[in-house]
């Protein structure tokens, strides 16, 4: 399966005092970094696409279809959070298996797919481990393995690698790039690290005070021509 276009049209959402309004166009199979100061609404944007929050007005189109009213599980979207991606009382194989059957009724073919997804993410042989017995990087690999198994066209990464050290983060970015080369997913990733965007993303969307203030190709955003606010944010 390849990616699906994601389009936010005048998507309004209010969170306490802050009113937000997002407009964004992401092409199928594109990788876009969502960057911006804390509290600017980056995660809210992903939550709206994933269906964890409902907009008060506006439309969210995924693959050309209006996602309004679709519960999170029925959207063509997988999301990886910064933490709590796994159920701590279920082993690795079962955590991944939930991506195939939410009641964990798995066939032999399903189990083979699980094993393949785990092998692909470098977790072969760790099927029976509990999340507590894994490193932080391995836990995020399990979440990616589940996303592979679900095989949805859009992948949302909400600071998924933020709590990992530099070397591990680079490894995870490489893994995502390799997986993307096979699957051609659309990826929206929230990150604070310019390095993440440089390594992976075609474009950068700069979110500020509840709206998308600027969208431009990565190279342009890191050039002197970038908007002043973005340059101030990354400290350029």
């Amino acid at each position: 399966m390849s990616g699906a276009a994601v389009r936010l049209e005048n998507v309004a959402f209010s969170y306490g005092e802050t009113a937000m309004s997002f407009d964004l166009d992401v092409e199928a199979s594109e990788i876009v970094a969502i960057m911006g100061p804390s509290g600017s609404g980056k995660s809210t944007l992903l939550n709206l696409v994933a269906g964890f929050e409902a907009p008060s007005s506006g439309r969210i189109l995924i693959g050309g279809e209006d996602a309004a009213g679709l519960p999170p599980a029925q959207r063509p979207v997988s999301m990886v959070f910064q933490e709590n991606n796994l159920f701590s009382h279920l082993d690795v194989a079962r955590n991944v298996g939930l991506g195939r059957s939410p009641s964990l009724r798995l066939t032999g073919a399903d189990r083979a797919d699980i094993a393949a997804a785990l092998a692909r993410t470098g977790l072969a042989g760790k099927e029976k481990r509990l999340p507590a017995e894994l490193s932080g990087g391995e836990r995020q690999r399990v979440a990616l393995a589940r996303a592979l198994l679900r095989d949805r066209p859009v992948l949302l990464l909400d600071e998924a690698f933020a709590s990992l050290g530099p070397a591990l983060r680079r490894e995870m970015l490489e893994l995502v790039r390799d997986l993307d080369a096979e699957r051609r997913m659309t990826i929206l990733m929230v990150t604070h690290h310019p390095g993440d965007a440089r390594a992976l993303c075609h474009r950068i969307a700069f979110v500020e005070e509840g709206r998308v203030a600027a969208v431009a190709p990565t190279a342009e955003m890191f050039s002197p021509d970038a908007p002043e606010a973005f340059r101030a944010y990354i400290g350029a």
């Binding site: 994933a50 999170p72 979207v77 999301m79 959070f81 159920f87 701590s88």
Partner: peptide
């Protein structure tokens, strides 16, 4: 911990 994950995976 589980609410968003369960919603995403459709575990009900």
């Amino acid at each position: 911990r589980h609410e968003r994950l369960a919603a995403q995976l459709g575990i009900t």
